[in-house]
Amino acid sequence: MTLLKIDHLKKSFNKKTILEDVNLEINKGDVIAVIGPSGSGKTTFLKNINLLEHPDSGTLSIEDKKLDLSHVSTQDELWLRRHIAMVFQNYALFKNKTAFENITTGLIYGKHLDKKEAAKIAEEELKQVNMLDKKDFYPSQLSGGQQQRIGIARATALKPSVILFDEPTSALDPELVGTVVDDIDQLAKNGQTMIVVTHLISFAKRIANKVIFFEDGEILSAGTPEEIIDNPKNDRIKKFLEAVSRDK
């Protein structure tokens, strides 16, 4: 069952093409890993899906709603953000709010829940990422891994159809990567539909049922982890994976 469909997504900055006619169809429960070289448009792709950046053209269909991405109203934008949540590379938490408040704010002001219901959901999601004991801590009092787990809890609290992850482990110390990977792996096992941009090939293989390789703002190839990572037919992908392997 198709959950999210993106057609002819295009984006440019200062006459430089960043995304060139990107098309993607995602089924409910899919976990899509997006790999490719730096500067290939992977992060821009996520931000355009979530309308943190506005595409030049293209359409997005989700939950039986189709949006013309070149003409999106504020109302449509807010609706989309309730259905497509995002976890950021640099956490993007509110510095002046506690872990608990970082989660309840979106529920109260975005989904218009009352404070009691928002508090209940926040506590449930904090418990899921083993962070309930840190609910009254501010971001500055938390490690990078802990902040990222709060970011994950904030996203899952919205009960979104799709969660986007932009390099969720890249800002973490190596010893903290495992806990965040485990959290995302658990979401995958629970059936959460996700698109994950990552530079960790082993992580991509672990969580994804589909891998797409981005190059120069286009999806160069898409397939299973076995097809794209274990047995790539494309010479460009082979070269990329060899380079990534050497960098370890």
Rank of each mutant, 00 (worst) to 15 (best):
V177S: 01
L164G: 12
V180M: 07
V180N: 08
S170V: 07
E167D: 03
V180L: 09
A171I: 00
V162H: 03
V196N: 05
L187P: 13
S161A: 15
A171G: 05
D185R: 13
V162W: 02
S170C: 11
F165M: 06
D185Q: 11
D166K: 01
P174G: 05
T169C: 10
M194K: 00
G178E: 01
P160A: 02
I184C: 05
Q186G: 12
V180C: 07
V196S: 05
P160F: 08
N190Y: 02
S161Q: 14
L164W: 04
G191K: 10
V181L: 15
T193S: 06
M194S: 04
S161D: 15
T193L: 12
V177M: 02
I184L: 13
A157I: 04
M194L: 00
K189V: 11
P168H: 11
V177Y: 02
E175Y: 07
P160C: 11
V162C: 05
S170E: 01
L158T: 14
A188W: 06
Q192S: 04
G178F: 03
D173W: 02
T179M: 12
V177F: 00
G191W: 08
P174V: 01
N190W: 10
Q186S: 14
D166C: 12
G178W: 05
S161T: 11
E167S: 00
K189I: 13
E167C: 05
P168E: 14
L187N: 04
V196Y: 04
D182T: 15
D182N: 15
K189T: 08
D166S: 03
F165L: 01
E167Y: 02
S161Y: 14
A188T: 14
T169W: 07
A188V: 07
A157D: 08
E175P: 04
V196P: 05
G178K: 13
F165N: 06
E167H: 01
N190C: 09
N190V: 00
V177D: 02
G178V: 07
Q186P: 03
F165K: 10
I163C: 08
V162A: 09
F165S: 04
A157C: 02
D166F: 05
L164E: 06
D173P: 04
P168F: 03
L164C: 09
D173G: 00
T179S: 15
L187A: 10
L164H: 04
V196A: 02
F165I: 01
S161C: 14
V181R: 15
L176W: 02
M194P: 00
G191R: 07
V180A: 04
S170G: 07
V177T: 13
V196I: 15
I195G: 02
P160E: 03
D183Q: 11
P168N: 09
I184S: 03
T179G: 11
T179L: 08
I195V: 14
M194I: 00
P174W: 01
A157Q: 13
S170I: 07
I195P: 03
Q192W: 03
L176V: 02
L158S: 13
T169S: 07
D183G: 03
L164A: 09
P168L: 12
G178I: 09
I163A: 08
N190M: 11
P168S: 13
V196L: 06
T179V: 14
G191I: 10
V180S: 09
L172F: 12
T169H: 05
L164K: 06
T193D: 00
T169A: 07
G191Q: 01
A171W: 11
E167G: 04
Q186D: 12
G191T: 12
F165Y: 15
T169V: 08
L158M: 15
D173R: 04
V162S: 12
V181Q: 15
